[in-house]
Design a binder for these strands. Structure first.
Lengths: 195, 195
DNA sequence: TCCCTTCTATAAGGGATACTCAATAATTGG
DNA sequence: CCAATTATTGAGTATCCCTTATAGAAGGGA
C-alpha cells in the first residue's frame, strides 16, 4: 500500500544492541546509533520513536534470546541438575567469549538505569525473575526425581545460583578468569543437598 | 598565605558521592554537582580539575571507607569464619538500608565505565581484589586454626563468596529481599568444608 | 595598611546532544 | 498512470553539556 522500509528491523536492532551493550545507554549517542545502523536520524525516529524506545526494543530482543537459550538448555537434559550445571558453565563460556568485557546487557542496564527509570527496571527485573523461575523449576524437578533431598530449600538454592550467575558477570568485567569460575560452579553444585 | 577555602572538601565529596551513586557518572551533570555541593563551577574546577577528577576522588573515598569497614569486621573476631559470616550479613544489611536501590558504587561504576575507561576499571578492579584478598586471608586463617579442612581450596571459596556478594548487589537493585539473602549466606557458609 | 594570592560569583563559549521537519523518492491499489 | 501513502534524506533547531574567563571579595604576610 506504500513504500516499504529498506532496512531490516532485526539487523538494526542487532547493530544498536552492540553499541548499547558496549557503552551503555547514556554514553551511546544518537550519532553513534546513526553510524552503526546506517539509518538517518529521521528513519531511526520514525521506526523507534526515541533513543529510549530503541533501547527498550533492544532490551526485549536481548532478553527474549537469553531466556530462550536458558529454556532450551534446561529443558533438554533429562537430568535437571546436570542441566543446571550445563547452563551455568555456558554462562561462563559466554563471558570468556566476550573479549571486550561488556558483561551482560541486563545487568549493566540494571545498575545504570534502575534508580531513575521505573519501567526499565521492571523489564530487567522481569528478566532476572524469569531465569530464576526456570532454575527453580529444574530444582523442583530434581527433587521430585529424588536427586535432591526432599527437605532441600529450593527457593534459597535457586537464589544462591542466581546471585552466583550475576556476580560472575560483574567479576568478569574486571578480569575474565573462566577457570576459576568453573571451579566455583562445580563447588556449588557439589554441595547441593543431594540424596 | 592566602584566602582559605570556605567549603569542606570531605563534605563536598560526600555530596558528590550521593549524586554519582544515585545516577551514575554520565547521567550526573556538572549542574547537578553544583546544586548538591553548593560550590560554583569555578570552585569545583579549581578544586578537582574536572568532572572525571572529582569522580575519581569520590571513588577512592568510597573504596577506602568500604575497605576499612571490611578490614575491621574481619580483624575483630577471633573466629575467622564467624567474621566472614558477619561481614556478609552486614553487606546485606547495607543493601536493605538503601531504600532507593542504588546498589554499590563500585559495581555500578564497573558496569558503566569498565569497557571505555581503563584507569577507572583498574581502580575498581583493585577494590574488588582487595576485598577478595581479605576474605581469602580469613579463610586461610580458619584453615590454620583447623576450622576449615586442610584440603579446602581457599582460592575457590573466596571467589565463591565474592561472586555472591556482588551478585546480591545486583539482585537487590531489582527488589530488596534481605531475608532470602541471609538464607543464601547461611546456606553457603554451612556448606563450607569444615573439619 | 598594602599586596598578593586564592577564593567566589556570574556569565558565556564552543561543542555535543536528542530530536524534527519539509522536500524527495518509492511503492501499491485502483 | 494516477493518487495515496509511507520511507528516506540531511540540514536544522533548541537545549544541554563541560569547561573556562573575568571581575570582585576576602583573608594572610610584610
Amino acid at each position: 500500500m506504500a513504500r516499504p522500509a529498506e532496512f531490516d528491523r532485526d539487523e538494526v536492532l542487532d547493530k544498536a544492541m552492540e553499541a548499547f551493550w558496549r557503552t551503555g545507554f547514556n554514553a551511546t549517542s544518537v550519532a553513534d546509533l546513526v553510524n552503526v545502523t546506517r539509518l538517518k536520524p529521521g528513519s531511526l525516529y520514525s521506526a523507534f520513536a526515541s533513543k529510549r524506545g530503541l533501547f527498550i526494543e533492544v532490551l526485549d530482543t536481548y532478553a527474549a534470546r537469553r531466556i530462550e537459550g536458558v529454556k532450551q538448555v534446561l529443558d533438554r537434559a533429562e537430568d535437571p541438575l546436570m542441566a543446571i550445571r550445563d547452563m551455568m558453565h555456558r554462562f561462563v563460556a559466554d563471558l570468556s567469549d566476550d573479549k571486550i568485557g561488556r558483561g551482560c546487557l541486563m545487568v549493566n542496564t540494571m545498575t545504570e538505569l534502575a534508580t531513575e527509570d521505573d519501567e526499565i527496571r521492571e523489564r530487567v527485573s522481569n528478566y532476572l525473575d524469569q531465569v530464576e523461575q526456570y532454575v527453580h523449576r529444574s530444582l523442583e524437578l530434581a527433587q521430585q526425581q529424588g536427586q535432591l533431598r526432599a527437605d532441600a530449600d529450593t527457593d534459597t538454592l535457586a537464589k544462591m545460583l542466581m546471585t552466583t550467575i550475576w556476580g560472575m558477570r560483574i567479576m568478569s568485567s574486571k578480569r575474565p578468569d573462566p577457570a576459576s569460575y568453573h571451579k566455583v560452579i562445580d563447588h556449588l553444585l557439589n554441595t547441593l543437598p543431594t540424596s
